[in-house]
Simulated scan of single mutants.
Amino acid sequence: MSKHFAFVVVPGHGHVNPTVPLVEKLVARGHRVTYLTAAELLPAAVAAGATPMERPWALPRPAQRGYPFAYSVKVLVARLRAAQEQAELVSPALVSRLGQDPPDAVCYDSMDVLGPLLAARLGVPMIALMPSWANNEHFDLHDLLVRGGLPDDSGLKEELGELRLTQARFRSANGLPGADAPALAYEPPSPLHLVFVPREFQIAGDTFDHRFRFLGPSLGSRAADRGWRPPADGSPVLFVSLGTAFNDRADFYAQCIEAFGGTRWHVVMAVGERVDLPPAPDNFAIAAYFPQPAVLDGATVFLSHTGMNSTLESLYYGVPLVSVPQMPEQVVNGGRVAELGLGRRLDPSAVTARSLRQTVEEVAADPGIRGNVTEFAARLRAVNGAVLGADALEELLR
C-alpha cells in the first residue's frame, strides 16, 4: 500500500545528497515523499520525484578565519539553541500545511530538532536519518568531539550544562522523548535509524542493534551526471575540494597551486563561490563546483576536507583520501580513514605546499592503501543502500 513520507532535512549538500537515492527508490515503489529543506536545495528533491516544501533556515555561522573557523563550543551551543527556537517558531505553519495531507511518518535529519517536533504534533512515527556517525551507549561522537576535537573549550562544563537544561525543557514542553539525554544528543530515541554510513566504517559498528540499519552510500541518479571528463593525455587526476560549507580558503588553494603546478598531476579543484585566485597553471582546472561523482570516477587521489558524504563517495569509487579537515567532525572522519588504511590525515594547522605534495605522492604510490581502498569499494558497491532503506521503512509501517 502506498505511503506518504515527510523528509525533514538540514539544509546542506552533505545532508541532502545521501537521502536523494532513498527518495528516488520510494517514489519508484509508488510512495509519495514531501521533502522539507532550504529552497536552494529543493531542486534535487524535486528531480527525485518528491513534492517540495521550503523550510526557513537561519542559524548563526562561524566566521571563516582559517582552521578551525572559530568553530568553538560556544558557536556549537549557539547554533543548537537557535535551531530549537527556530523549530518552535516555524513548526505551527508547517504542521498546518502538512496537516492538509498528513504523512504516515516523518523521516528527519538526526542533527535537527524540527523533524521530531513535527512528528509529535502530527502524531505519526519518526525515523532518524543519519548522514554521519550513529551514536549509542557504546559510542558517542559528541563526547569524542568535546574531549578531543572542539577548540576553545573554556567554560565547557557550564555551557553544556545550560544546553542540557534547554534541551530538556524543549523536549518536555513539546512531548518529545529523551529529555534526560546528554547535552549534545541532537535527536530523541527513534524506533528506526537509517545510517548512510557502512557498518564497517562506523566506529564501534558491531555494538549497534536492530534499530540501526547501516545503508552505506548510494549515488542514485547523481552517478549519471557526466559533466566532466578525464584528461585525454591520461594524466593522473588529483581532485581537490573542501566541500560546500567551510570552503573559503584562498590560502589553502594557493598552497595547492604551489604544490602541484607544473607537475604530472591534472588537478581538478573546486573552490566554491567566495574566493578569488590568481591565474592557474595549465595543469589545473578550477571552478566553483564540479560533479563530484564524475570526477571521483576518474580520480587517482582525493585531497579532501573529509566530510562524511565526500569521504564515502571517494571510497565508493575506490579513490584514496588525503584529509585536510575543516571542522571537528571531519577530524574524526579523516582519522577513521587513516585507521582503516584508506588514506592519510594531515594537521590542517600545519599544512604546507611541501607536505601536500609529499603526502599525495606517497598515498598514490602506496600499494597497501590502494589495495585496501579497492577492497572497500567492492564491499560498498555490493550493497544497495536505497533498497535497504526503502525495505526498512516499508517494514516499519506495514
Rank of each mutant, 00 (worst) to 15 (best):
L98P: 06
Q64N: 09
S190W: 04
D206K: 11
P293H: 06
S110C: 10
F246N: 01
H266K: 11
R81V: 15
V195S: 09
R55Y: 00
A270M: 05
Y186L: 11
W265V: 08
F246V: 12
G318Q: 03
H305L: 00
V332W: 06
V20E: 06
V16S: 13
L117F: 03
F239H: 14
P231T: 10
A119R: 02
F252E: 04
H31W: 06
D209S: 07
L192R: 07
A254E: 15
G341Y: 02
A78M: 10
A58L: 10
P18V: 07
E158V: 11
M269S: 07
Q86C: 01
P103F: 07
S235M: 04
A223T: 06
G220C: 10
P325L: 05
Y67L: 05
P103M: 09
R249Y: 14
G175M: 13
L165Y: 03
G262A: 11
Q86Y: 01
W133F: 15
F5W: 04
Q326E: 12
P281H: 08
G149Q: 01
L396H: 12
T263R: 13
A280Q: 12
P191L: 12
L26V: 08
S304P: 10
L114D: 12
D297V: 00
N333P: 09
V337M: 02
V9L: 14
A377H: 03
G123Q: 04
D282C: 08
F7M: 12
A378C: 06
H193Y: 14
A377L: 04
P177W: 12
A223E: 11
L315P: 05
P189F: 08
P217G: 09
D276C: 02
Q100N: 06
L397C: 11
L144N: 06
A353R: 09
G385D: 14
G175A: 14
N333A: 13
C256A: 13
N136T: 09
V351D: 05
H138L: 02
V23E: 01
K157S: 15
A365F: 05
P131N: 10
H142P: 01
R336Y: 07
L321S: 12
Q100H: 04
A353H: 00
V387W: 00
P291T: 05
L315S: 04
L342E: 13
D104N: 07
V146G: 04
T166M: 10
L165H: 10
G175S: 12
L89P: 00
M130P: 01
Y35C: 06
L321A: 10
P151K: 01
E395S: 13
A392D: 02
A185I: 03
D143Q: 14
A280T: 14
F239E: 01
